[in-house]
Design a binder for these strands. Structure first.
Lengths: 230, 230
DNA sequence: TTGCGTCCATACGCTCGCGTATGGTTGGAT
DNA sequence: ATCCAACCATACGCGAGCGTATGGACGCAA
C-alpha cells in the first residue's frame, strides 16, 4: 500500500523563478517582510542551502519577484485587452477584469504598502504610471484633449484602486450578484462620458472630434456577466 | 555656560498615550511591524523598562494605538464636518478634507495594509464601515433611495481611497495648484449628481422626492482653495 | 570508474526584537 | 526624615531570520 513515489512533478529541482513566484505569493499574503528566506524554504520543502545557491541574498530574491510581477502586470493584463479596438470597450474591459480578478489587485495593494523600500517603490511607480498612461490613451482615443484625458483617467484609476481597497478591507460593503452589476454599470456609465457632453465647458467641442472613428461606438453597458472567482 | 536644563517640557515622564501616539507615527512610516518596542523606546529616548511599565506586551500597545486612531477618526474627521446642514456641502467637505490632509489618509493605508492581523482588521473594518455609512446618509439626504445611496457612497468612497493610493504611490501623477482644483471639481460634479437626473431609470423620480428641503442647494463647486500641507 | 558541476542539507555565528527580573531614582504624602 | 509608588535602567534568556561555510547526493560526460 506504500504508494509509489510519483516522480512526474515531484521535485525536479527548484528554479529561481520558483522562488520568485513563492515570494510573490508570500507578499500577497503577508506583505514585504513575509518574503523571508527561511520561511519560504520551509514552504517549498527545502532549506536555506537551496536558496543561497540561486540568489546571493534576500534583496536579489525581492528584485526577481518584483521583476516577475512587472512582467505579469504588463504582459498579461494589458496585452490581453490591448487588441480591443474600441477605446470605450477597452476601459470597460479593464474595469471588469480588475474587479473580477482581485487576485492581482490584492497583490498590488500588498506590494504598494511597502513603498518605504526604495526598490519596491521603483517598481510600483513604474507599473502604476504605465497603467495610468494606458487609461489616458484610452480617454484620448475617445476624443478628450490631453488635460481632460488625464483627469478622467486618474479619476477612473482611483475609483478602481479604491474598489480593491474596499473589497479587501470591508468585503461586506461590496455587493455581489445583480447588485454588483448595477454598481459596475453605474461606475462605467459615470466614468466614460460621451465626449461633448462631459463636464466643464460643455459647449467647447460639440461632438467627438478626434478622428478615431470608433468614438460613438456601441455604448451598451449591459451583458455584464462578470464575477469569476472571489 | 552649561545651559540650565529646561524642565518645562523636557521629559516629565511618558504616558501610555505618548507611546500610542509614537506607535501610530511608526505605523504610518513603516507599517505594522514598525510598531516594535525597542525601536520605539529608542525614539522616545527611554528603554524597554519604561514600556513594560505602561503595557503588558506589544499587542497591548497595538490595541491602544488602534483605539487612539479610531477615536481620532470618528471625533476629529466626522465631528468637524457633522455640523454642516447641507448634505451636498458635507460630501464636498469630506472630499476636500481628505485630499488636503493626506496625513490621516496615509495612516489609513498603512494600517489597512496589515489586515492579516485580526486586531487590526477589526478596527479597520469598523472605521471603514462608519465612514461609508456617513456617506450613505449624505446621499440619502440628497434624495437617493437606499440602494442608490449605497452605490454612490461606495463609488465616492472608492474614488477617495484611490486618490490616496495614487498620491502615495505615484505623487507625480497627482496634479497640484489649479489643475488639482479642476480635478477636484470634476470629481465632485460627477460624484454628486442632481437627484432625478442621476443614472439608470431616469424617469422614475422626477425630482428630489425626500423632503430634506436642502435638496437642490447651492451646488456651487467653486472657491476650491484647498491645498493645505502636502 | 572517475571527475565535475548542479543542487541542496547541516551547522554555526551574528543581529534584533520580545519578555522578565531586578535594581535604582525621583517626587510627594505623612 | 521617611516611606511608598510611579517611572525607568540594566541585564539576561529566548527565538527567529540572515548570511556563511562546509559537506554530501546525484546526474552526466569522458
Amino acid at each position: 500500500m506504500k504508494a509509489a513515489i510519483d516522480r512526474s512533478d515531484a521535485k525536479p529541482s527548484l528554479t529561481a523563478e520558483d522562488w520568485a513566484r513563492a515570494a510573490l505569493d508570500a507578499m500577497a499574503a503577508g506583505g514585504l517582510d513575509a518574503v523571508a528566506v527561511e520561511p519560504l524554504a520551509r514552504r517549498l520543502g527545502v532549506t536555506k542551502g537551496s536558496f543561497y545557491w540561486h540568489f546571493v541574498n534576500r534583496e536579489a530574491l525581492l528584485r526577481a519577484a518584483l521583476e516577475l510581477w512587472e512582467k505579469r502586470e504588463t504582459e498579461d493584463v494589458l496585452a490581453r485587452v490591448g487588441d480591443e479596438p474600441d477605446p470605450y470597450a477597452r476601459i470597460v474591459k479593464v474595469f471588469k477584469e480588475a474587479n473580477a480578478g482581485y487576485r492581482s489587485g490584492r497583490l498590488y495593494l500588498a506590494i504598494a504598502a511597502a513603498e518605504d523600500n526604495p526598490l519596491v517603490r521603483e517598481f510600483v511607480q513604474r507599473v502604476s504610471e504605465r497603467r495610468m498612461q494606458y487609461l489616458v490613451t484610452c480617454y484620448e482615443a475617445l476624443g478628450f484633449d490631453a488635460a481632460r484625458a488625464q483627469h478622467w483617467a486618474r479619476f477612473a484609476y482611483a475609483t478602481f484602486m479604491g474598489n480593491l481597497q474596499i473589497r479587501r478591507d470591508t468585503p461586506a460593503l461590496m455587493p455581489s450578484g445583480a447588485a454588483f452589476n448595477e454598481y459596475l454599470k453605474l461606475m462605467i456609465k459615470t466614468l466614460i462620458p460621451r465626449t461633448g457632453v462631459d463636464d466643464l465647458a460643455a459647449a467647447e467641442r460639440p461632438v467627438a472630434i478626434d478622428g478615431a472613428g470608433t468614438g460613438t461606438a456601441s455604448h451598451r453597458s449591459d451583458e455584464l456577466n462578470t464575477e469569476k472567482s472571489s
